[in-house]
Design a binder for these strands. Sequence first.
DNA 1: ATCGAAGTTCGATGATTATCGATATATGGT
DNA 2: ACCATATATCGATAATCATCGAACTTCGAT
Lengths: 103, 103
Amino acid sequence: MARRLSHPDPRAVSLAEVLSALGDPVRLRIMAVLADRREHVRGDFEVDVGPSTLSHHMKTLREAGLTYHRMDGTRCFVSLREEALERFPSVLNSVLEACATQS
Amino acid sequence: MARRLSHPDPRAVSLAEVLSALGDPVRLRIMAVLADRREHVRGDFEVDVGPSTLSHHMKTLREAGLTYHRMDGTRCFVSLREEALERFPSVLNSVLEACATQS
DNA sequence: ATCGAAGTTCGATGATTATCGATATATGGT
DNA sequence: ACCATATATCGATAATCATCGAACTTCGAT
């Protein structure tokens, strides 16, 4: 398992890339869970895809600069990235609100 | 040419579908032009793709419930759909603002 | 009646994507 | 040392997508 996962500079990510990353039901569901601004582990995301597919979606969100992944032991703790919220504040906050209430 | 183009009920479109439709540079550029809330014709969208490709993107936005297409003669007038703005108000308004300023 | 212009649709193609299972790697527990 | 757990990565596959050019349709003008 990779000990350190790469986190891009959110300023290098375009709005289209962010919206594209958010435009998927599985990833929106993940974002809805992360909307409480706390760290979460894999078991918190109730999505019906296999582990490797979930990894793929997590990678997509991470590479869009939206999430921060902290490895601790064999676990991966995931949370929203503050820098991402600062990049497109109103867009991300409204999406979080929308997907948290009625995903 | 199709005389009437179908416009879906925006309430039947999910947030993921909307964000997916918006998650493309060409379509975001179109939305940036439409952000002034006025009707526009094809020539207003300065995108460097062919006519058929532009049609494809227009169709994507229309089927996401985001745009209204009015045929007049051989011309097609496109505008934002009010119902779409009512569906996800804060999301769409913030995206419009973001892409209009720094697409 | 014919022609050109505008825009959609169709068919094809290459690129991207979502998904899975298998494999790999690191960690924690015994 | 060994084994189970958690997750990432790889390889494959099927589906979706962006793009183009060609053909088609409608309309306006000559």
